[in-house]
Nucleic acid binder design. Structure first.
Length: 614
RNA sequence: CGGGAUGUGGCGCAGCUUGGCCAGCGCGCUUGCCUUGGGAGCAAGAGGACGGGGGUUCAAAUCCCCCCAUCCCGACCA
């Protein structure tokens, strides 16, 4: 195709808006000489980009990131928990992925791609076909063979490694992919924060031994910290529970945000931080120096709750033993915690080794304890397993339900009056509890889990038979770790953390574009020409820029620029034409600077480079 | 999965209780005029058969039944 001069493209194009004018490459003497060399296939003109912004808030969007990503034209829903990523969102995703790749590669990670569709056999081999439950998307091929859509890839990668890695000489190995993942969430919600289809980076480490795993784990811990720092997020790594994936040591990377579904507790005096699911706080000693008194029953008509009982009897809640009945597949279990504590159901479930653990309904409570809810107690409670929190065994002369309506027992002494089947840490830690490290009171906050790293050990290599031969020719299971980052979730988390009432405020590092050039009046030839030139020179300098050439009134363009969240906005109005100075406004903070047109490229470049370096 | 709610042009909603005029409004969209520093104005248009199915009725968006979808609230997730 022959190159054409289009010196005055601005006004020509407005009057004659045929698509081909935009697509014709421009010659070196006028606008964008280097476009072909830069392999930019289309011009970044707002009039031609698919950025469907919405004035009104979609009715089904609740959290900020969901609302803004939909309104600003980044995502559209295809089904519950399943989204289209429109061009702007894809650009952000690619930026995050690029950062992730750099940090994984820096640690020696090798990228590969594994299948989304996975054969059931592998999952049956690992035992997770049954364990994973309804969250696993299952499907069959035409022959009736079972498959699932991968929610994670331990089975596949372990299968790969057991077939291809035979010698200690091939270890350690860090393999990762960035791939769609599928989890049929019981309740998809919050837009990209909890979808059923999402993009995730998952890396798997393979080492000879525990010491090697420790090194791989450290590498990933470091890499993850760098990734989220570079994404411009305020976050914290916290000790976590390992959940269904299994394993021992594990940390979650939590981005602080109100909308987050994770609660973490942390210490302001030392570096302790943990997910409440897993947090431990040392048992408090209370009333230990008392002499055990004789057991006695007292009438407590209608006093069911801890608050009612303590008020009625005039005792501290710390003196109560709260008895909660849970239904599990192994029958009903009574969990005992102090009156002012709550049960951590995850801990309970783990200690019991059960898959299902739900608070029993009142009918079950009545059947088991012989009394309505509020009057159950461990003394004389027959036929159910009793699990007591650590603090319980230190209590003296406690108060419990009497297993009959309108009565409690006082001077209950664990060990004397009842014997638990299990004593363990069952308590849900909350703000104010003592830090396990330094005993100062803990703080609590909400956050979004954007990454998690696990030490798996030989859990998968053993069942799937992934072994290598060591120097002495001995077969040993490879020692594994796995490390995930939710890419799309990270994008949403970034919006949760970086927005104001007008829209998104992208950090430079993951912004879809760095600059938008806005001519105030698309009918003013001088403005349009200046805007075109500014845009073209920025583009030629390799800067990620959009020209808002839509025939809209200025207010509309400003509102959209704020909503979409371009870090920099260059406005070309009457003053600019008159003075030759362009207005550059920072989205974050709103600071405005006037820059001579001929210096705009270096000025913008400096800001961007400064932001990306920092 | 339990509890609550909603499905009416692209988006946001009214209409439904007390069935009945051709199913309305705002935004967006198209065309024209006009306007151009924070989502302007005027005029003329296009676009839905009311989530799906069944039923009641002379007549159903409105009443009844079933199903589906979506959203919100609660309980082992990147």
């Amino acid at each position: 195709m022959k190159t054409r001069h289009l010196r005055h493209i601005g006004t020509e194009a407005q009057r004659e808006p045929h698509r081909h004018i935009y697509l014709v490459p421009l010659c070196a003497s006028c606008l964008c000489a280097s476009i072909f060399r830069r392999r930019i296939s289309t011009f970044m003109r707002a009039s031609q980009l698919l950025i469907p912004t919405l004035r009104e808030v979609p009715a089904d969007a609740e959290v900020v990131s969901h609302r803004l990503l939909v309104r600003a034209g980044f995502i559209r829903k295809a089904a519950a928990g399943v989204y289209n990523l429109l061009p702007l969102a894809l650009r952000v995703v690619k930026k995050i992925e690029a950062i992730v790749r750099e940090e994984m590669d820096r640690q020696g990670g090798q990228e590969l791609v594994m299948p989304i569709i996975q054969p059931a056999e592998l999952w049956q081999e690992s035992g997770r076909w049954d364990v994973y439950g309804p969250e696993l998307f299952r499907l069959q091929d035409r022959h009736g063979r079972d498959f699932c859509l991968g929610p994670t890839h331990e089975e596949i990668i372990t299968d790969l490694v057991r077939n291809e890695v035979k010698s200690y000489r091939q270890l350690p190995l860090l393999l990762y992919q960035i791939q769609n993942k599928y989890r049929d969430e019981r309740r998809p919600r919050f837009g990209l924060l909890r979808g059923r289809e999402f993009i995730m980076k998952d890396l798997y480490s393979f080492d000879r031994d525990q010491a090697g795993l420790d090194i791989s784990y450290q590498k990933m811990f470091f890499a993850y910290s760098r990734v989220f720092e570079r994404c411009g997020l305020r976050f914290r790594p916290v000790e976590a529970d390992s959940g269904a994936i299994g394993g021992k040591d594990t940390h979650e990377f939590i981005v602080f945000a109100e909308a987050g579904e994770s609660t973490i507790v942390f210490c302001n005096h030392c570096d302790f931080a943990a997910n409440v699911e897993r947090a431990f706080s040392p048992p408090e000693r209370f009333g230990v120096d008392e002499e055990p008194a004789p057991l006695r029953e007292v009438a407590t008509p209608g006093r069911r709750t801890v608050a009612e009982v303590t008020a009625f009897l005039g005792v501290d809640a710390k003196r109560l033993i709260k008895t909660l009945l849970f239904e599990t597949e192994q029958g009903v279990v009574a969990a005992l915690v102090r009156g002012d504590r709550d049960v951590n159901e995850i801990k309970l479930q783990k200690e019991l080794g059960v898959l299902r653990c739900e608070l029993a309904d009142s009918a079950t409570v009545e059947k088991v304890s012989g009394a309505g809810p509020g009057f159950a107690g461990p003394v004389g409670l027959a036929g159910v397993k009793i699990a007591a929190d650590l603090e319980i065994m230190q209590m003296t002369n406690a108060v419990t339900g009497a297993n009959k309506d309108d009565a409690h027992l006082v001077n209950v002494n664990p060990g004397r009056d009842f014997q638990p089947d299990l004593v363990a840490d069952l308590r849900l830690v909350k703000a104010g509890d003592a830090c396990p490290g330094c005993a100062h009171p803990l703080s609590a906050t909400q956050g979004i889990e954007v990454g998690q790293i696990f030490k798996l050990g030989d859990k998968y290599s053993k069942v799937l038979g992934a072994t290598y031969l060591d120097e002495s020719g001995q077969a040993r299971p490879v020692i594994m770790g796995c490390y995930g980052i939710g890419i799309t979730r990270t994008m949403a988390a970034a919006v949760e953390q970086n927005h104001d009432e007008n829209g998104i405020i992208w950090p430079f590092s993951i912004a879809p574009f760095h600059v938008v050039v806005v001519p105030v009046s698309d009918r003013d030839e001088k403005q349009m020409e200046m805007a075109q030139k500014t845009y073209a020179s920025l583009l030629a300098a390799g800067i990620e820029v959009v020209l808002d050439d839509r025939p809209e009134r200025p207010g509309v363009k400003f509102k959209d620029a704020d909503l979409i969240g371009y870090p920099l906005r260059i406005t070309v109005g009457k003053q600019a034409v008159r003075s030759g100075e362009l207005e550059v406004k920072k989205r974050a903070g709103g600071e405005t600077t006037f820059v001579p047109a001929e210096k705009i490229v270096s000025y913008v470049r400096e800001i961007i480079e400064g932001a990306l370096a920092g």
